[in-house]
Nucleic acid binder design. Structure first.
Length: 562
RNA sequence: UGGGGUGUAGCCAAGCGGUAAGGCACGGGACUUUGACUCCCGCAUUCGUAGGUUCGAACCCUGCCACCCCAGCCA
């Protein structure tokens, strides 16, 4: 069955294949370059798929390289978390683990080479002045007055920058390109800046740090990367990337290929916003089940298989796009439906009494763990006089096509008998607190009498055996559609706290107490096994979006005290 | 406005001169010991748009339109 699902090709693989065929490279070597400034989210799963997946596809290597050239934004916590998440997704870095910062020596040497070759110069312009002289989208920039310094002077100045003789921002090393270039990125971009700040990998060794545009091509070339995949916004940087590789004199020339990053409907994907949610306590951490981080999705019950399948189905292309959340939901339902053992539990119990069943007597039943996979075995459950069903599976005044329990109606209790609802018991307030039924004793599942068909089948638990637990139902933090439009109006400012939070759905955690589950669930060693308590346990919200409501057993499943 | 990109169904996405794949969503039906799952069937006479070339165009050419990215000493 699995192999009938063919691996979808994409334009990147076509390019790589062409390079291989044309002999431009003998094998494939990619790299995954996360910046350790946050945890990985679902969007990064696409980066991983594209980079590690491409290496995998061509039997090549993929390096994991932390892109840590800016100590101001990066932390050790994230370099650990990121590795764990990549591993969890089932990818590895068979090409090795690297840090961009471990190439600082090489970057420095190459910067001096550029100076000696007349390809770079030290510029003393203050930041604002430099911006002003860069020109605009329509007007060319002007040459810096420092552009024609001698090699000796540039070398001396650059060495002093390194020696720490100047304060932050006093000078910068710039590429000597073309201030009139229509591509603004080519108007003498900065290569090195002064930043007196310790780095989480190199400590106090450096007070100048290379810019991404200078460091990245060098790192790629040094590691023998053949294909360097990145997102669309770097397209305009490619000429600069190629220039750096060229003037540094590398014999090999990595090819940069850009693709569209992943966007998901209603999902906040910006690290800046996610960080805000964490730092201001709106969620309990980067791995909160409401977060779109890989760690959060994992806790919400997503499997790596579902996420990988989703990424692959969403495709890799160059058009900006927003993938429908429904596709992700489809993928997790499909995978869990295939692999999760079935177990019965009720989240909001409603007492059911089988009036024609003798008090104190029980019948042992054998229930399959998976309807399509007998090899997954069976488990036992006991049927007795008092049971619990889901409150929402009963309707006193059924509307429309309601096939579940209703007064006078018949329904099958999964794996047991067909029962008829005879009577409804209410409390003073008029709430239904009990339903009294008679069972058709000839209709036991798998018996001769089991052939009779009724419209509905319900899950249930035996009251005497049932184990109470607390359930937390998590829903992702989603934006409302209007917010997305507002967002599109594009202003750079982070929306004010109130605004931002107001755009996310509230009540994203529902805590239920008094839930009842089959006793065999108490044998659970880890929660993962029982994420799918009840197949079909998902429902639509007001907007018609379907979510899995997965009970996070690991934290919330609390077997009753013995 | 200069430069770089992208426009194929509600959302993704194949297609590369020979007459519009597939998935999600949606609608209808069958099946069903959970209305799930599964299974059928339906869902673009048309590819942003207007012309041109061609026996033949989503694919080639020209003009126009829309959207995204670039003016950090962020990545």
């Amino acid at each position: 069955m699995e192999d009938s699902k063919s691996v979808r090709s994409n334009f990147i693989w076509d390019f790589v294949q062409q390079d291989l065929d044309a002999g431009r490279c003998q094998s494939v070597h990619t790299r995954l370059p996360p910046e350790p400034n946050g945890w990985l989210h679902i969007g990064h799963a696409k980066n991983i798929y594209v980079n590690a997946g491409t290496a995998e596809r061509f039997g090549g290597l993929c390096n994991l390289r932390f892109d840590d050239t800016n100590p101001a934004k990066e932390e050790q916590e994230f370099v650990d978390g990121i590795q764990a998440d990549i591993r969890w997704l089932g990818y590895d870095w068979n090409g090795g683990l690297f840090f961009g910062s471990s190439y600082f020596d090489e970057c420095y040497e190459l910067a001096e080479k550029l100076i000696r070759d007349g390809n770079a110069y030290v510029c003393d312009l203050p930041q604002e002045e430099m911006r002003r002289m860069r020109g605009t989208l329509t007007q060319p920039g002007q040459n810096s007055p420092y552009r024609d310094r001698s090699v000796e002077e540039n070398l001396d100045l650059f060495r002093r920058m390194r020696a720490g003789e100047y304060p932050n921002g006093a000078r910068v090393l710039r590429a000597k390109l073309d201030m009139a270039s229509p591509n603004i990125n080519m108007r003498d971009p900065a290569l090195y800046r002064i930043l007196h700040m310790p780095h989480h990998q190199t400590g106090d060794k450096w007070c100048i740090y290379p810019m991404y545009d200078f460091a990245h091509p060098i790192q790629d070339a040094l590691e023998g990367i053949t294909h360097s995949m990145c997102s669309l916004e770097y397209e305009a940087h490619r000429p600069l990337y190629d220039w750096v590789v060229e003037v540094c004199g590398f014999p090999n020339h990595p090819r940069q290929i850009e693709y569209a990053r992943l966007n998901l409907t209603r999902t906040v994907m910006s690290k800046r916003y996610l960080r805000k949610l964490v730092e201001e306590g709106y969620v309990r951490g980067w791995d909160d089940p409401r977060m779109p981080t890989l760690a959060g999705l994992r806790r919400r019950g997503y499997t790596k298989e579902a996420i990988r399948d989703f990424i692959e189905r969403a495709g890799v292309a160059k058009a900006d796009s927003v993938v429908d959340l429904a596709l992700l939901e489809h993928c997790i339902r499909e995978h869990l439906g295939e692999v999760a053992p079935r177990a019965m539990a009720v989240l909001r119990p409603l007492k059911v009494t089988i009036t024609n069943w003798p008090e104190g007597e029980t019948k042992a039943l054998t229930l399959e763990n998976h309807p399509a996979h007998p090899e997954m075995g069976t488990h036992e459950a006991r049927f007795g006089r008092t049971l619990y069903i889901e409150q929402e599976d009963f309707m006193e005044n059924p509307t429309g096509k309601f096939f579940r329990m209703k007064p006078g109606g018949e329904v099958r209790l999964k794996g047991a008998y067909i029962v008829r609802c005879d009577e409804v018991v209410k409390d003073e307030a008029g709430n239904v607190v009990e339903v009294r039924c008679t069972a058709d004793l000839t209709s036991l599942s798998c018996s001769e009498g089991a052939g009779r068909k009724v419209k509905g089948t319900l899950h249930w638990v035996n009251a005497d055996d049932a184990v109470p637990f607390e359930a937390r139902l998590y829903e992702p933090l989603l934006r409302d559609e209007d917010a997305i439009e507002e967002e599109a109006e594009g202003d750079e400012a982070v929306p004010d706290k109130k605004d931002f939070i107001a755009r996310l759905n509230p009540n994203s955690i529902t805590v239920l107490t008094g839930c009842m589950a089959e006793p065999w669930l108490t044998d659970a060693k880890d929660g993962d096994k029982f994420q799918f308590l009840r197949l079909g346990y998902f429902c639509k919200d007001q907007d018609g979006f379907v979510f899995n409501r997965v009970v996070e057993l690991k934290d919330s499943f609390k077997p009753a005290a013995k």
